[in-house]
Design a protein around this nucleic acid. Structure first.
Lengths: 206, 206
DNA sequence: CTCCATACTAAGCGGTTGCTTAGAGCTAAG
DNA sequence: CTTAGCTCTAAGCAACCGCTTAGTATGGAG
């Protein structure tokens, strides 16, 4: 058996299931693990290659540069979380916001390895790639804002500052990726439920 | 005149006013700016030296290594924010929590350059230095938890999960350092006030 | 004046970095 | 069988990294 250094969790991260060929996917997953663990700049192409069980030069068969690896991770990661936020269902604004926060915060816990790279390594992208990702981030913000605005229109939320509240809710969910630890006593679903509760308390009328 | 690359804001950051001699302080401030802008690993000792207006070797007159620069920043930064949280006053638990959140969130906005290094570069510390900083972080968490617990005892807060709520409040404040931009339309004080409002809404009884 | 400590610089060392080159092994079409 | 194309590796290159060494300038004590 070949030792690749990729643990079962990472291989099961459905975020990357559409990436082909297999060697390119293996390399991406290795990069996600390395970037999440030590940060983009502290990770060498040799780290990535050896995690993927290949030689350093093999990286460049599938990707033009180390930055392109990061860009692929960032792009797919943002698209995944935007798709997740866009597919929220629920009866009424309260249930929709509850589901949105539970899903978004839960994703940042369950896929915290991917989420860390997605949320905290943006600064290492080239200006062109950064702008592409920034557009996706604007769409994510707009989605979350519309879930809150719906409740205000329905009269079930009391929110003095819509933009500020949206910022706070997104910030709360995103920061889960920073502090979450797999061994902790809360499961990702429990974190999602707790955060949904806290957010609904924040926007409920007196 | 010598060009040091240190802008007025950084030189006025009162966080570093006690660091002497002056050249060591100038070097620390340069390191804060560089680490905050590009991250610890992407910053070279030559970057720091040229920001401080000195030669690369001058770094090692005042600090043993690049990591010791980071440790000094992290230590002083954590001590400063712990001191800030410890000096909160106010009549009753509601006003004390309001002041605590406004102060803590406001600090992460006003001194976001320092705060970014303090909050997001922990992973680059040596294990020994990391443990020293972790102890300060536990004290910060305990402080914030006690402000919330006081309100529960007084009967003015409704908090089903004290540990979870503390985590969320700290997370909200800390993440300000990630998204805050000096040119934005909200001042640090306004952010502090808005966040204090949101947190009080989160913990108020029905 | 001499002497010594302090704060700094010019130059550079060994090691590591992202990435390239040259070529090997394999598959499959003609 | 030949050959083209794809995936991969061994080896290595130029640049850059953190840090050190050797030496200079300055200033205060005796």
């Amino acid at each position: 058996m070949t030792t690749t250094g990729l643990d079962g969790f990472a291989l099961l991260d459905k975020t990357w299931s559409t990436v082909t060929p297999e060697a390119a996917r293996r390399m991406l997953i290795a990069a996600v693990q390395a970037f999440a663990g030590k940060g983009y700049h502290a990770t060498t192409t040799r780290d990535i290659a050896s995690l993927a069980g290949m030689s350093p030069a093999a990286v460049y068969i599938h990707y033009r540069s180390k930055e392109e690896l990061l860009f692929n991770i960032s792009l797919v990661g943002h698209e995944t979380s935007l798709a997740l936020l866009s597919s929220i269902e629920g009866d009424g604004a309260v249930e929709r916001l509850r589901n949105a926060v539970a899903t978004f915060a839960g994703w940042h816990a369950e896929f915290h390895t991917t989420a860390r790279v997605v949320q905290y390594e943006l600064g290492a992208l080239s200006p062109e790639h950064h702008e592409q990702v920034a557009e996706l981030r604007r769409q994510i913000e707009q989605r979350m804002r519309s879930y809150i605005a719906d409740g205000v229109e329905e009269g079930v939320f009391d929110v003095p500052d819509l933009k500020g509240a949206t910022l706070a809710v997104l910030s709360l969910c995103i920061d889960v990726a920073r502090w979450y630890q797999p061994g902790g006593k809360r499961t990702p679903d429990e974190i999602g439920a707790m955060y949904a509760d806290l957010v609904l308390r924040m926007v409920r009328p007196n």
